[in-house]
Write a protein that binds this DNA or RNA. Sequence first.
DNA 1: TTCATGGTTCGATCCTGATCGAACCATATG
DNA 2: CATATGGTTCGATCAGGATCGAACCATGAA
Lengths: 217, 217
Amino acid sequence: MKEAPDIAAIAALAGDPARANMLTALLNGEALTASELALEAGVTKQTASSHLTKLAAGGLVKVEAQGRHRYYTLADADVAGLLETLMGVAARAKALRTKPGPKDEALRHARLCYDHLAGDLGVGLYDAFVRNKWISPQRDGSVQLTRLGRAKVSSFGVEMTALEAGARPLCRGVPGLERAAASSRRRGGRCAAGCVFRARLGEPEGQIARAGIYAHR
Amino acid sequence: MKEAPDIAAIAALAGDPARANMLTALLNGEALTASELALEAGVTKQTASSHLTKLAAGGLVKVEAQGRHRYYTLADADVAGLLETLMGVAARAKALRTKPGPKDEALRHARLCYDHLAGDLGVGLYDAFVRNKWISPQRDGSVQLTRLGRAKVSSFGVEMTALEAGARPLCRGVPGLERAAASSRRRGGRCAAGCVFRARLGEPEGQIARAGIYAHR
DNA sequence: TTCATGGTTCGATCCTGATCGAACCATATG
DNA sequence: CATATGGTTCGATCAGGATCGAACCATGAA
């Protein structure tokens, strides 16, 4: 478990209220100065400086100096995603008891959008692709684009270049996932690796695949 | 910023090395006893007990008693997702310097699988759907299933029930995202809300949509 | 019933890190 | 050049929480 300390390090960075406030303030994509972030966090400029140094060292934020101003932004979309995930987990854990502000409402809504109609279309497409035998779920959990399917998507105008892996499955079974895949199948659920493709086409983000990894006892 | 403390609370839970080790040990979906988790974390049983109480109170794990044994599992797939996201951020932040063990390799590989061929097919399908005018990206960033598209997916055998919202767009523009959407469009990138659908069909998880929210300065 | 084992609770210890005042450096403006 | 403002660094303080030994409770097996 060599990895845990590093996970802990990142999590610990977001685990401080002041730093969490700063990160959240940066979620809308604007770049804020150290002073502004100090205000957001409700701490002094020196405390803010100390925190921001840590966030930058930890790779959660980027800083760009413009004259005497230091503009901070989230390091990348993954950090934003992390914050969103935290929000989601917090909400489910009922840790989120207060009504979020407008900005958070927008994020909430965006997430609802993810889980809505587009998801249904993706699911529908996957099922239809299977029924029409355009893709073939494999025993090992992978999904194969069939000859028929190749012809079909080609007829849609899909560029075949990236898909021209011959008989190569779209998603190969993963050694560590075999057991989980088998387990998931027995439960009448979709297999893990197969669900990778399905996740691509419409399920809530990664949930199915994680459900595969995450075999309920 | 009422939300930040709750985010911080969740993050802080994962921010302790012992707890992080425990959570990671549970990532493969197995249920582990308190004693096993104590071993995983390298702490005494009493310390483990204390930690597990917090994790359970925070909603990150679930516990099920069987006789004198207490089996712990991750609370849900979102928690697993959170851990994965943390791993991803840690990896990008170069905080991850050691070579992960086999189990982690499987997770890594699963993620590679996500970002691979299935993604290409999804992207290809989206583009083809647009080119064929089966879906129509709207000015406000939403995506509309066209009359033609409805007929098409219906011909695939896709159940129309969930999609029978008439002229309702698959993904409506979000008020808070309009500016970001416009901004993203100007950059030659895909719009935010439109990319919700696209994300469904193949882009790395939520990245595009977040990129939209996250407007680079 | 006794003993073993799993797990919780209590209390004391101590380390870590957030915090801020003071001082200093860097930049901008009049 | 002097003053104002943005931001960093240093050092001292102290609260919080991880930790573990001891004790206790709960369950299982002989």
